[in-house]
């Protein structure tokens, strides 16, 4: 190493990064706790009326915020979409977790085979898998819509889960196969001599060693699904299968919507990812570090 970076520069960059990543989250939290009146009035201080949880109460219980009732102009500002947020969160959770689990279940064995074994058509199928994300998603919307329609999966979570799984799978396989390829071949030769079948070598040797990477790629698949909008919008229909990305878009499209309500919905939508990142990230980082100090 050629000397350490200036601590001031490091601090500055860290602060900038924090500002761009944490800033919006903080703003939406703040915005959700302050009534519109105060938010939009440049004359008064932000905390003039204190903080209140009216937005959250409305989203979860449907109880109208007092402020809107008093002003008698609440109809346009209150959006029905905000009431859909809790249900859509559950939908998103189910969809994203399922896509994540399916990605790991399908992607990890596939990646292992691609990384460690020769089979006819290996190159071609791998190329196909890796290049498939290059097809613009827009071009696929219609064919996939028709396909799911014929399968009777329109407006269901299952349909969206399948599409999200397929969208993330190339990345899962690519990332994990790189990881499996880095494992020393002798480890698997030893396993072969120790009476392991291919599946046992995967299950008992490769998988435990790859857990951090699997955690990271699983998280990636979750995020991809959680934030996906186009397919979710087209395939969820109007029914109860709508994930949070679709509901948030509907909420944001309403030009008259209350700012504090929009911010409430935004913050609620962020929470599950934050929780998951905190839970999984520590495990992922710990795993990566423990792997790096072999020698």
């Amino acid at each position: 190493m050629a000397g350490r970076a200036n601590p001031w520069t490091t601090g500055l960059f860290a602060a900038l990064i924090l500002l761009f990543t944490g800033g919006p989250v903080l703003l939406s939290l703040l915005g959700s706790l302050i009534p519109d009146r105060v938010l939009l009035d440049q004359g008064s201080s932000l905390f003039a009326e204190g903080l209140n949880f009216d937005g959250y109460r409305y989203v979860f219980t449907g109880e109208l915020p007092r402020a809107y009732q008093a002003e008698n102009a609440n109809r346009a500002m209150i959006s029905d979409a905000a009431r859909q947020v809790p249900a859509s969160l559950i939908n998103s959770g189910i969809i994203a977790l399922s896509a994540m689990v399916l990605n790991i279940l399908l992607g990890a064995p596939a990646a292992f085979l691609f990384a460690r074994y020769l089979f006819p058509g290996k190159k071609l199928s791998f190329l196909f898998l890796i290049l498939s994300p290059l097809v613009p998603a827009v071009a696929l919307v219609t064919p996939i819509y028709i396909m799911l329609q014929s399968m009777g999966l329109l407006g269901t979570r299952t349909g969206i889960i399948l599409v999200h799984t397929a969208r993330a799978l190339p990345f899962t396989v690519l990332i994990l196969s790189v990881f499996f390829r880095k494992m020393p071949a002798e480890l698997f030769e030893a396993a072969t001599l120790d009476h392991c079948s291919r599946f046992q070598a995967f299950w008992r040797i490769a998988l435990p060693l790859a857990l951090p990477s699997i955690g990271a790629t699983g998280l990636f698949a979750f995020m991809l699904s959680y934030s996906e909008y186009m397919f979710a919008m087209v395939l969820s229909g109007d029914a109860g299968a709508r994930p949070v990305s679709v509901v948030m878009a509907a909420l944001a499209r309403n030009t008259d919507v209350s700012w504090s309500l929009l911010n409430t919905a935004i913050f609620i939508a962020i929470v599950p990812t934050l929780v998951l990142v905190v839970l999984v990230w520590r495990f992922v980082v710990e795993g990566l570090l423990s792997g790096s100090v072999k020698g």
Partner: peptide, 17 residues
């Protein structure tokens, strides 16, 4: 390989970490 009645010691040890 597993049924040949042999055991092998590898250069890199190949222990399961």
């Amino acid at each position: 390989a597993a049924n040949r009645g042999i055991a092998m010691v590898f250069q890199s040890y190949a222990l399961y970490p």
